[in-house]
Amino acid sequence: MKALIAFLSIFMMFVLAIPVNADGKTELKQYFNKAADKVKATENADEKREILNESFNNMSKILDKVLSSELISESDYAGIEQYKAALQEKQNELTGSNGYQRVPDAQLNNFANYVVQDMEQADSTITISVIALILIILLVVLLL
């Protein structure tokens, strides 16, 4: 029994020594990547649009919930608002609203890649605190 405890203790030591890379930003990036994978997996343009639209709507809802939380700071608020605005621009382009030309059917796979790449870049320039990111992760996991 003691040997087992010792073995488990050692195992835990190694686990704890691993740097914690999995954070909220990773969760955000994987969210859009999963949506892009689904877009590319279907041939039907309407389905592709539906998948993208739904992913934008769900993420906007999550960000709204985080914004309404009292736990987030003023700087989190600004960062999340900026992220949300970038998301809205992409949704406008997908649907062809607010001065955008609608993304052609043949370009939807490339547009899905564009969303992943642009959100990965936007993500590195905005500052969102750990608390806000934890809220986002919880909502991504629980609500979707």
Partner: peptide
């Protein structure tokens, strides 16, 4: 020491 995850167009992830 930061968030350096990205995906290629096939969905593979890289650091």
């Amino acid at each position: 020491d930061g968030d350096y995850l990205y995906h290629d167009t096939s969905g593979n992830k890289y650091y």
